[in-house]
Amino acid sequence: MTVVLETRNLVKKFGGITATDNVSFKLRKGARHALIGPNGAGKTTFVNQLSGVLQPTSGTVLLGGQDITGWSARRRAISGLARTFQINQLFADFTPAQTIVLAIAERENKGWEWFRPAGTRSEYVDEAVELLRSLGLSDVLDQRVGSLAYGRQRLLEIAIAVAAKPHVLLLDEPAAGVPESERDQILDVVSALPEEVALVLIEHDMDLVFRFARSISVLVNGALFVEGTPSEIANDPRVRQVYLGEEELLHV
């Protein structure tokens, strides 16, 4: 399978702290990949460099074989790299319908249209409605985003990223803060995404990770610690050491 996203020797330093330590990482088309690691392992920092929110100190990021290290977040977005945020980044005063229609208009490069009212392109509205329905947001599609329940907002966060029809989708803790009972819905939504899209999931909920992922990378102290299939990772004593290590030390 072709590699869609790749990093080579990626390093990010904040002062004396190395948040990303020489990470070389490959993501193949259609991947269902999970990125796990203890708190402060540098998972979000890594994703921020992939999506262009942060610039790496050194190293390169490649999208579809092309060096995109110096590209802006916007340019990466229109080249097919979408992401969700750990903390919701939504347009609070819009409705979900407005949000998705706008996202589609931007994808289709119609964001400069200034005379024709938004919403008069019925194909955009239809697409937005279908997307929102598939995420179970149809009943609230005309309500103010800021007034939606948190779980609903998390789903909209995913919907915005999906509306861009990305090749690569980075999901930064999509279930963070979502009640246990609604997590399955988020997993269902993520699992139902088109097969050819390469997905990267950052998640603390191991149950979710092992149900979703076909491959897993473990990040520790900013460095890639180990990669493998879910069963390999689950049975790897070093990974257990990392996750349980501190506790064991405490017991000793």
Binding site: I78, F91, A92, L102, A103, R107, E113, W114, A164
Partner: peptide, 26 residues
């Protein structure tokens, strides 16, 4: 006309959340 067009919608989006606006390719 302008404020109700996609362009106008994008301005309101930028006002609300420029980071999100950038990451949807705006």
């Amino acid at each position: 006309r302008l404020v109700h067009s996609p362009f106008g919608l994008s301005l309101k989006a930028i006002k609300q959340n420029p980071l999100r606006a950038r990451t949807i390719g705006m």
